[in-house]
Simulated scan of single mutants.
Amino acid sequence: MSETEDTAPSAPQDKGVIVRLLDLSGGAEDNIIEDIKGFEDIEHANAFARAYVRDNIEICRAPGASARDTLDTWFAFGENAEILGEAGGWVSSTELNEFIERPASPEERDWRSLDPRRDDPSLTEE
């Protein structure tokens, strides 16, 4: 093996940005639902994670529920998303209050259009 082969990038770096989906209810092992790869760049991953959490909060929002009730429901039964190992990765805590206070539009919730798995289901990490 040559010296250049010894310093070649490892496979995980070749995967690009990974978004991890987390089960806040504790129902999944280590709270991890799945890892999703295949994002074009950090901006694509951030947009997906943001829309995914936005949608999940709306799923937890009951008609007439207060912001506090919605937040409590999300923490008890919801799902979060985080960007793995990337500087500049979106973090839900930076916008959580806004998400809870203001219901999302359909466009803000549309994580499916940003999901790299829609064209390649093999992009789910196990």
Rank of each mutant, 00 (worst) to 15 (best):
N31C: 14
A28E: 06
A81L: 07
A28D: 07
A62Y: 08
W90N: 05
S66T: 00
R61I: 07
A65E: 01
G88H: 03
I36W: 09
T94P: 04
L84R: 07
G89R: 09
D6E: 07
L21N: 02
V17H: 02
M1F: 02
I59A: 04
A51H: 05
A87M: 06
C60Y: 02
E34I: 04
S92R: 06
D23I: 12
T94C: 15
A28P: 03
D14E: 08
N46Q: 12
H44Q: 09
Y52K: 09
E86P: 08
F77N: 14
T73Y: 08
A65N: 00
R68M: 13
E29S: 13
V17F: 03
R20L: 11
E58I: 02
E29R: 15
Y52H: 07
D69A: 10
S2N: 08
R20A: 10
R20Q: 08
S2W: 04
A67R: 08
G38R: 00
G16Y: 10
G78Q: 11
N31E: 13
I59K: 05
W74K: 01
F99M: 14
I18M: 04
D14G: 13
S25C: 11
D23K: 15
A8F: 05
E82M: 09
K15Q: 12
E98K: 09
W74F: 05
I42R: 05
S10I: 13
E5H: 03
S25W: 12
A45C: 05
I83E: 01
Y52A: 03
E43L: 12
D35I: 04
E86Q: 14
T4S: 07
D55A: 14
F48I: 00
D72E: 10
D35E: 11
A11K: 02
F75T: 03
T94D: 14
G85I: 02
D14H: 07
A47T: 00
A76H: 00
I36K: 03
Q13A: 13
D23N: 15
V53M: 01
E34N: 15
E3R: 11
T7G: 06
E5Y: 00
G89E: 02
Q13F: 10
R20G: 10
E34A: 14
D6H: 06
L22E: 09
E3I: 09
F77S: 14
G26C: 15
E82W: 05
N97Q: 10
T4V: 04
V17G: 01
E58A: 08
S2Q: 05
D55V: 04
G88F: 08
F77H: 14
M1E: 02
A62C: 06
S25A: 15
E79H: 07
G38T: 00
